[in-house]
């Protein structure tokens, strides 16, 4: 009996498995449509960075001293990074919602590539972040931010911001899978993000912080990327490292995090349901 069963029945022959690219594009399309269908979510995620811009530019900015003199020029590159960091929460929420709703179960029962769900989610969020970063740049120009370097360098700054957002979406996709519930994802992510965003060079100069904090604040990824984006936007500040040093460190962080997080996220996805 078991010997007979060892061979497939034969009346039904499985079709050929699909390509990872096709699956990834299908999931990306689905996520982008989802974002488009709930525009209010996108609007609310944009309100927060605008509040930060107004808060730091007009309320606290006068009291903050930064190298180079112009606080608005210092601030806006930091706002870019702050925006994509907090925005990555959306990836965690989206992933957790799919997990909770059972959509991931359905995907797992389909003959699709195992990495397509994560790749599709992060790719859709990449597009979302390109849109968001463009808008924040526009807000920046409105409040007086001016590029001090070349257009190419500023384009590189924006590209680095988007790359960092992509890196973060892999981190937070994993968080979403680990938490498994949209509300918990929201609650869990903020305490993790806050130290990275605030104990960084995003809003203030690291030199103004106490000594014990400076080591972390100077070398942690959000700081390093913020400094790199700033250097590409307004040039090297007095007392800071050169632009290329920051950019190389930022790219190293991005590469390092991706190398760790992609396999981690995929393995988590495989086990998470």
């Amino acid at each position: 009996m078991s010997a007979v069963r060892a061979e497939p029945v034969g009346i039904v022959r499985p079709k050929k498995s699909g390509s990872a690219l096709r699956d990834m594009l299908a999931v990306t399309g689905r996520n982008l449509t989802s974002i488009r269908r709930v525009p209010q979510l996108l609007v609310f995620t944009l309100i927060q960075p605008v509040i930060f811009v107004v808060l730091f530019r007009y309320v606290m900015g006068g009291a903050i001293e930064v190298p180079g003199g112009s606080y608005v020029n210092y601030l806006i590159p930091g706002i870019f990074i702050q925006t994509v960091t907090f925005g990555a929460l959306q990836t965690a929420i989206g992933m957790a919602a799919d997990l909770k709703s059972g959509l991931l179960e359905r995907f797992r029962s389909l003959p699709m590539s195992r990495s397509a769900v994560l790749a599709g989610r992060t790719t859709a969020d990449l597009f979302r972040n390109i849109f968001v970063v463009m808008l924040i740049a526009g807000v920046g120009f409105l409040v007086g931010f001016r590029v001090q370097t070349s257009a190419i360098e500023f384009a590189a700054a924006l590209a680095l911001t988007v790359l960092f957002s992509y890196v973060l979406s892999w981190v937070f996709a994993t968080v979403g899978l680990l938490v498994g519930d949209p509300e918990s994802a929201q609650a869990a992510a903020f305490p993790v993000m806050a130290p990275f965003v605030f104990a960084s060079s995003a809003f203030v100069a690291v030199e103004s912080m106490p000594d014990w904090l400076q080591g972390f604040a100077r070398h942690q990824p959000v700081s390093v990327v913020a400094s790199a984006v700033r250097a590409l936007s307004i040039g090297q500040l007095p007392g800071a490292e050169s632009t290329s040093v920051y950019v190389i460190r930022a790219l190293a962080w991005c590469a390092g995090i991706l190398l760790v997080m992609i396999p981690l996220a995929v393995s988590r996805y495989r086990r998470s349901i």
Partner: peptide, 8 residues
């Protein structure tokens, strides 16, 4: 144990 996307 399976779902559809409510926004689509």
């Amino acid at each position: 144990s399976a779902a559809v996307d409510p926004n689509l």
